[in-house]
Amino acid sequence: ARSKEVVAPPGEHPLQYRYTFWYSRRTPSRPASTHNYEQNIRQFGTVATVEQFWRVYSHLVRPGDLSGYSDFHLFKEGIKPMWEDDANRNGGKWIIRLRKGLASRFWENIILAMLGEQFMVGEEICGVVVSIRFQEDILSIWNKTANDQISTIRIRDTLRRVLNLPPNTIMEYKTHNDSLKDNSSFRNTKLTL
């Protein structure tokens, strides 16, 4: 029923997929269990066109202006930004660590690449996340099939291009299965140059 509310009004430019924005925030001292993660995450808008996207996005706080321990997520409609979701169960994510001050620009660029279908990996992309932390900020892009090497490498190379990353930028990949095992999003990743 929710899908029917989000239609493309005349004159607007449809996106290949509909996307939902989510926001989450938690107290870093509390360990993240699935239960409290689900309680702390809220969706606040679904968009189907380029123009709808800008209407929502332009009213958001820029991630670089957020304080504390918070995340913005933009995921395809119907996919929850959780490791356990059916679309994510066999997936994983690329992680890019950003020094403070870069998150807002990189977040916008990764979103525009996803909405514009720049990754060319079929149905593989699930969504993107910007995670605001104390020492650094982290950008992630989630895909469906962690062991699909052709897609994960293509996603990595597209990221380098659309974010204009220096060639020596370290890229990290972590499967959601590993995240579930060590209950951590960003520790124990596989590094590649």
Partner: peptide
């Protein structure tokens, strides 16, 4: 089927459209 592909400039240009306000 065909994919709807937009480059960054196209998307940024739509930001100022009256429909996006």
């Amino acid at each position: 089927g065909t994919r709807i592909i937009y480059d960054r400039k196209f998307l940024l240009d739509r930001r100022n459209s009256p429909l996006a306000q």
